[in-house]
Amino acid sequence: MFEKNASEKAMPETAASRTTAPEQIAVSIRHLSKSFDGVEVLRDVDLEVREGDVVTILGSSGSGKSTLLRCINWLEQPDRGSIHIGGQRIGVNDAGRPMPVRELARVRARTGMVFQSFNLWPHLNVLHNVTEAPIHVLGKSKAEAEAHARELLEKVGMSPKADAYPNTLSGGQKQRVAIARALAMQPQVMLFDEPTSALDPELVGEVLSVIKDLSAEGYTMVIVTHEMAFARAVSDQVVFLEKGLIIEKADPETFFTNPSTERVRKFLERDES
């Protein structure tokens, strides 16, 4: 697999060249470990996300799921192990040294992240939030970036608010803009860090339905969530983390109806009650 990825790396980085390879691995995580102040948050985690797959990460709070997600785009630096995004290793260069910042930024730009607290840039209107990184990171022309941004805003149902500023939007609307902003980078994988946890219950649905649409369109996504029904509906693979260990990894049917561990069974029961 690594040979294959190494040859991929030499190819020009276009969306087309990425998707033509069959059974391409979008994200490969190997032997990942991380501790904070001596507390092990991730322990030897292995995970593979195939191109076009949706992987949801479940687990109680403090189980390490957000840390795992944040390691993928190097917002957290793991202590050991490796992460490859589309065959390109993130954070560490070929010589085994920490990546120079520019190179790291380039690899990061292959991922799109949606945060629990939206993190839109409040001084920019909705349209410019979406075009900011494509113009100033990818170097797209303004016209091209805006045309693409308008398409994406249409997709997430935020076209009418293109000129509004974030402080005038509801949480659900902010999150939909944040999704469009991440998509605008044409990432190889979308990372969702509890995208609905900061929302009023009646706003959760609009965000989940956008994510569901994306999964139908074949986007590769890794989602940390507490929404069980949603996880069951969109996932190709469900991963359960407990104290930094992956204790269950299964397709959603098996995971939700016939989990192999007692811990997951309990977790699901608690959710039903």
């Binding site: 785009n73 520019r102 409040p122 990184a133």
Partner: peptide, 30 residues
């Protein structure tokens, strides 16, 4: 300054200089 906005900038591939002049400084001045 909200650290989440800096993280969002990093996640979108911004490097320090552009992040500072395009995202941090304008907000700080306002």
């Amino acid at each position: 300054f909200p650290p989440g906005q800096v993280e969002a900038a990093k996640a979108h591939g911004f490097t320090k200089g552009k992040m500072f002049f395009r995202l941090i400084l304008p907000q700080i001045v306002m």
